[in-house]
């Protein structure tokens, strides 16, 4: 038995050990929440892509017909009111078009593997910007965290492994400059980790309140019940397009006649 083990720890050392343990636990928890947030964002982006590709393009088409109809009516009535309605309808059509045919519509389905999730959790724990010791370190960690998030969304396991390997060799992962200093640092880190966890919860709640997220919840729920809500929406909007197209035809006839 070595002497080391029987040596009594000072109260500071005991406190430090306890706080270290707490920090590790909270960091693991934080990494989980970080993963939940990154997954939520990625899943939502891929749902948004799917929704825009299948339903958004139809809304854009419907808005185009509605804009044409408003313009034909403005032409016929000539009133200021009709003209401003037409301009409004045109703006809406342009917005819908750029949404349905923009970058967001290109996002493909997100299906993270368990390995990817594990790597992300590990990387998030190591990189965490909020556990930085100074401003330069914080900036570096923030940049790294962005890389970690991007690699996760892209499903790039190799990039995550590379980031992890780099961190292993980085000198400032090494700690230890006296019990007192360590304790102060750990207490600060604890507070930062708690703040960040709370901020993540808030962000998740805010994202869940968006219309796109609510829409996703409904679509997912219906899918569990064996219904394809997206297909239903396609039918609904297609029905409206038929009506709008007919109205444009009629209005064209009236303007000519």
């Amino acid at each position: 038995m070595s002497l080391e083990i029987v040596r009594k720890l000072t109260p500071e050392e005991e406190e430090l050990a306890a706080k270290r343990e707490e920090l590790m636990r909270l960091e693991a928890e934080l990494a989980d929440r970080e993963l939940a947030l990154a997954s939520l964002k990625a899943e939502l982006a891929s749902f948004e892509g799917l929704y825009l590709r299948r339903v958004g393009v139809l809304y854009a088409e419907l808005d185009e017909w509605n804009a044409q109809l408003a313009e034909l009516r403005a032409e016929q009535a000539g009133t200021r009111e009709a003209k401003s309605e037409a301009a409004e309808a045109r703006t809406q059509a342009e917005e819908a078009y750029s949404a349905a045919h923009g970058e967001a519509a290109d996002v493909q389905p997100f299906t993270p593997s368990p390995e990817l999730k594990k790597l992300y959790r590990e990387a998030a724990k190591r990189v965490h910007p909020d556990t930085a010791t100074d401003e330069a370190d914080r900036a570096r960690r923030e940049r790294l965290m962005k890389e970690v998030n991007a690699a996760y969304v892209a499903g790039n396991e190799d990039a995550l492994r590379r980031i992890l390997a780099d961190l292993e060799n980085s000198p400032d992962m090494i700690q230890g400059s006296g019990v007192g200093v360590d304790l102060v640092r750990i207490l600060r880190q604890l507070r930062q980790v708690r703040d960040r966890t709370a901020a993540i919860e808030l962000e998740i709640a805010k994202i869940s309140e968006t219309d796109m997220a609510k829409l996703k919840v409904k679509v997912d729920q219906a899918e569990k019940e064996g219904r394809d809500l997206i297909a239903d929406m396609v039918t609904t909007v297609n029905g409206r397009i038929d009506v709008a197209r007919q109205q444009v035809k009629n209005a064209e006839g009236k303007n000519r006649g």
């Binding site: 929704y51 342009e94 917005e95 078009y97 949404a99 349905a100 923009g102 968006t210 796109m212 829409l215």
Partner: peptide
Amino acid sequence: LARRGTAVIAK
């Protein structure tokens, strides 16, 4: 424009 359009379409 696309962001606004997306929000409107989602709503």
